[in-house]
Simulated scan of single mutants.
Amino acid sequence: MADFQTSTHRAKWIFTPNELVEKYKVSNQRAIKMLKEYGSTRIEVSADGSLSYPEPQLDATKVEKRSHTKPLSIEDEQLMRVFYEQKIQEVCLAFGFPQKIQGTAIIYFKRFYLQWSVMEHHPKNIMLTCIYASCKIEENHVSAEELGKGIQQDHQVILNNEMLVLQSLGFDLIVYAPYRSIEGFVDDIEDFCQANDQLEMLKVSIAFVFNDRLWLPLK
């Protein structure tokens, strides 16, 4: 694997909080504009990976109906993304995938929705495609049929969205999740504590951190 310092992850995918907010705002506003003009925000993906955008609706009844359709806010979209990031973890756990599969899939999912609104592409479909792509890049290949069957979803949706996801990632598929670094840090601390008879204190401290700190709701 390439060194992080020279990677596309570091060069292209590290953003400040303000930059992230701006990216989410752009995609959210684009989807809201589409809803006002066409009465729909959903972009359909065909079997060959091509996109079909909504067309203007001339029917008076449909025009009236769309005027009452309320778009998602940026905060609403954030909640949906967090929900499906949790679902990625659940699916990976159900299949018994290594932790690196989960980490890579979540990063792919996050990157995808820097380019798109959840109103444009359904997070459930993108979630599955990100897991599928993650299995490929992390050399733990699972067929789309097997993945879809395991969670009772149409595997064709995964295949249809594969090219869209890869293009949205800019084909930057090598990512750096924090798990390995954290595990290495914990191993070093355990070695230190064993040498100094403080391993039990470390376990109590870790349990406190996870119970009292890390599981707080995301804001």
Rank of each mutant, 00 (worst) to 15 (best):
M1S: 13
A2C: 05
D3K: 12
F4E: 01
T6H: 11
K12Y: 12
K12R: 15
F15E: 01
P17I: 09
N18E: 15
E19R: 08
V21W: 10
V21D: 14
V21M: 14
K23P: 01
Y24P: 01
K25Y: 11
N28F: 02
N28C: 15
M34Q: 15
L35K: 06
L35W: 10
G39D: 09
G39H: 05
S40G: 02
R42F: 07
R42V: 12
E44G: 00
E44S: 10
V45H: 08
S46K: 10
A47W: 00
D48R: 01
D48T: 05
G49E: 00
L51T: 03
L51D: 08
S52N: 08
P54L: 09
P56Y: 03
P56C: 04
L58I: 10
L58N: 14
A60P: 15
V63R: 15
H68Y: 04
P71H: 02
P71C: 04
L72T: 01
S73A: 06
I74H: 05
I74R: 13
E75R: 09
D76V: 11
L79F: 05
M80R: 14
M80N: 11
V82E: 12
Q86S: 14
K87V: 13
I88R: 12
Q89G: 15
E90R: 14
C92S: 09
A94K: 13
G96Q: 06
K100V: 06
G103P: 07
I106S: 14
I106C: 14
I106K: 15
I106G: 04
Y108C: 05
F109S: 06
Y113D: 04
Y113F: 15
L114T: 12
Q115K: 11
Q115S: 13
S117Y: 10
S117H: 11
V118D: 08
V118K: 03
V118Q: 01
M119I: 05
E120F: 00
E120R: 03
H121G: 07
H121V: 09
P123F: 06
P123V: 03
N125E: 09
N125A: 07
L128P: 05
L128A: 15
T129N: 10
T129F: 03
C130V: 07
I131S: 05
C135V: 03
I137W: 01
E139G: 00
N140P: 00
S143T: 14
A144C: 02
E146K: 12
D154R: 06
I158W: 06
N160Q: 08
V165W: 03
L166R: 09
D172E: 02
L173I: 14
P178I: 02
Y179N: 07
R180H: 13
S181R: 12
E183V: 14
G184P: 07
F185W: 11
F185D: 05
D188W: 02
F192I: 08
Q194P: 01
Q194M: 14
A195C: 08
D197M: 01
Q198R: 10
Q198A: 14
L199C: 00
V204T: 13
I206N: 03
A207L: 13
A207V: 04
V209C: 13
F210D: 08
N211A: 07
D212Y: 02
R213P: 01
W215C: 12
